[in-house]
Each structure stands twice: as C-alpha cells, then as structure tokens.
Amino acid sequence: MGDFDMPRFAQQLIAFLLMLASALLPLPATAAAPAGKVLLVISSHGAQSGQERPGFEMDELSQAYAVFADNGFDVEIASPQGGEPVADEYDPRKPYNARALSDPDFLASFRQTRRLMDVKSEAYRAIFVIGGKGAMFDLPINTDLKQLIAATYEAGGVIGAVCHGPMAFANLRLSDGSALVAGRNLTGFSNEEEALFGKRWVPHFPVFLEDALRGAGGQFSKGAIMLDHVVTDGRLVTGQNPYSTARTAEAVVAAVGLPAAPRQPYPDERSVAAIHSLLEGAGTQVAEAIASDPAGYDIPLIAVWGYYRTLQAGTDRAMLVQGLAVMELAEPHFADPEFKRTMGEVRQRLASSK
C-alpha cells in the first residue's frame, strides 16, 4: 500500500468481505463436492470381441461413464467375474470411446472391474446396467446383482439400465416378494430391433428382452428402431438402445435429484435426432441443417438407418417412404455406389406398389 497504512479494522473488514464473496461464488468444477457413488454394471459373458460369445457395448459404457463423471459422481465399474471383461467389437475413434480410452481413471476401473460379489453390501446413489447381448446371459442369473439392485432401490437409490441392460430386472424381486418392474413404465431393446439386428445370437436367448419385461408385469413402451427413447418411472430409469445411452444416464442424474451438466451432443446423437425430426415432418429443415454442417453428423448412420427402415417396411408403403426419405438425407454426403443402387431399388419398389 506504499506510504498509506490501512487501519487494522479496515483490513479485517476487507478480509471478511472477500471471504463472504468467495463463499457465495460457485466453486470451479474441479472443486465440486462429489455427488456420491454410482456403479456401472457390465457383462462378463463376452469372448473374442463378441465373435465367440457376445459381451457388453463399449459405446454405452463410455457414454454413461462420461455423463456420471461430468456430473460429479464417483464412478465404479463392476462385473460378475471382475477383471477386464470383453467388449463387443467397437470403434475406438468415436469421441466418447476415444475420451474413455485416454482417461486413466476410466482405464483403471475398466481393466480391473470389481466383482459383483465384493460390492453387494456397499451403498450407491445409483446403479446403471450397461447393455450388449452378453447382458442377456449372465446378468439375469447373478444373485449378487439382484441383491445389490434390490437393496439400493429400497434404500432410496436410483436404478437405471439401457439397451439389453434391463434384462437384469426381468426376474428381480424386492424384499417383500414383489417384482421390481411390476406395473412400472420402462423400455429396452425391442422385439423389432432384435429381428433386424440380433439374428446371430437371438436363437441362443432364453427369451426376448421385451417379452421378459412384459411377462414380469412391466408396462413396456418403445420408439422407432434405433432412435432415442428414454422412460423414467420414479427411481427406475430405462433406455431403449445404444443411441439412448447418454440421455438415459442424464435421466438417472435427474432422478437422483441433480441438474445434469450441459454438454454438446455427439454426432450420432445429432443424427438420431435428425431422423426423428424428419419422421415428424421437419425434413426440409433437417436437410438444411445437415447441409450446413455435415461433419457434425454421422452420415453413414443416417444412411444405414434409412436402409433398415426399408427392410422393416415389408409391404407398408408409408414406412418404405420414410426409409427412402432418410436415405435421401444422407445421399448428398455419402458417395457409395452400393448405397446409390439400393436407393434405386427402393424407388422401384415404391413405383411398383402404386
């Protein structure tokens, strides 16, 4: 202060005001108090990247991990056998996978997942079950997982799952003997999606996921194939397919009672949202949005979705028109001769069905 000596009471007053101001300011993200513990559960069933036995979906694990970590949770990963489970084949270049594979905390948890039998008595604010076809085999019969889910739910925790993950709930009963899903609104990988995308392993399933949840008394709902669909029923949160993962995890955050941190949607999320908007009649606006920023979308995903919609259509002309319209969204940005030929065949089908 140079030659000016501030009175001691003034120094004390300023120090007090600075302390008060700092207390009223939001803490930086790195200093935020932990939101509690979340457990991500993955299948141990996989072998040879899903070629010998189906495993879990890395896309779902990495997206869910990112959402919970970014919202201040202490994230743990567990599996029936512990150690490093085998994921089905995936693309490590996708942004969420690339992030996870470069995150030391994620890698430490993933390469040494905790055994479910070792965590069954621990307290979690939420449990989130990751999908992948392996979840159809080992998770529904794991008694440690059943006990942990029931105990967490009855203690006021939130239970979530995505894609094939809700199969863990199908034959799960609470301490009073009631089924967890009885009378509850929920979703998961639909029968239509199994018919189109699950042909290799479906013959080995004990039951279809949708049928199992309906049979347990669940009020099952579903959106169009491979589009984002999330259902929240109190402290039970479910998502239909891999493209529902991030929003399902955010819905779990909301069910815990916290506001989800803002984030930028991934290109595949933007693509699924674009398809959904087109189906609702906003085709022109969607085409313009994609044309202005094609790199912000997963163009092959849009093309493939349209193709599968035409396969699903059968003799349903309206669905066939939808599939072609989605393919036309991708066409200006997807120079693939086989894709062009397929579009020509779809147009011929439509012409012959008039």
Rank of each mutant, 00 (worst) to 15 (best):
D298T: 10
Q219T: 07
T284G: 15
E288H: 12
A182K: 11
A282I: 01
G239Q: 12
P104R: 07
A98K: 15
A21R: 05
G165W: 00
L25F: 09
P34R: 07
L61K: 00
G296Q: 10
G217C: 06
T315C: 02
I149R: 07
D88W: 03
A66K: 08
G183M: 00
P259V: 02
E345V: 13
L213P: 14
F197L: 12
L116E: 03
D211H: 09
A224D: 11
A135I: 05
F205Y: 14
Q240A: 11
L180I: 00
I159V: 14
E84S: 13
L13I: 13
Q81L: 15
I290L: 01
T30V: 15
V162W: 08
T310Q: 03
A351R: 01
G283N: 05
L101V: 02
I302Y: 08
E280A: 15
D91M: 06
P80D: 06
R115C: 00
G344I: 09
H204E: 15
L209G: 04
Y153T: 02
D228R: 14
V207C: 10
E192H: 12
P166F: 07
E192D: 14
V272D: 12
F128V: 08
A32H: 10
E122Q: 15
S292L: 14
K222C: 06
E210Y: 09
A246C: 01
S221Q: 11
P54A: 12
S44R: 11
A273Q: 13
A98Y: 05
A291C: 08
A289Q: 15
L18P: 01
I42Y: 03
S221C: 05
A216F: 02
A47D: 14
I42R: 11
G283M: 03
A246E: 09
P265E: 11
Y65S: 01
D118C: 07
P54R: 05
I141G: 04
V162G: 01
Q322F: 05
A289E: 14
S44G: 04
V129G: 13
A135T: 05
G156I: 12
S109D: 07
S175P: 10
S190R: 11
E154D: 13
A135M: 07
R214I: 14
A47W: 04
I130W: 05
Y90R: 05
F169K: 01
S44H: 01
A35G: 06
A161R: 02
S178I: 02
A289L: 13
G55A: 03
A318E: 14
T143D: 09
M1K: 10
Q51P: 05
A335T: 08
K340Y: 04
A313P: 06
V181Y: 06
A295W: 04
Q81D: 13
Y153M: 10
A32F: 03
V230H: 08
R93E: 15
T342H: 13
L227M: 11
M6P: 04
P85Q: 08
A35I: 01
Q81T: 15
V181F: 04
R247W: 00
L39S: 00
D3T: 11
Y266V: 10
L329V: 00
P85W: 08
A123E: 14
Y153A: 14
D298N: 15
I225S: 13
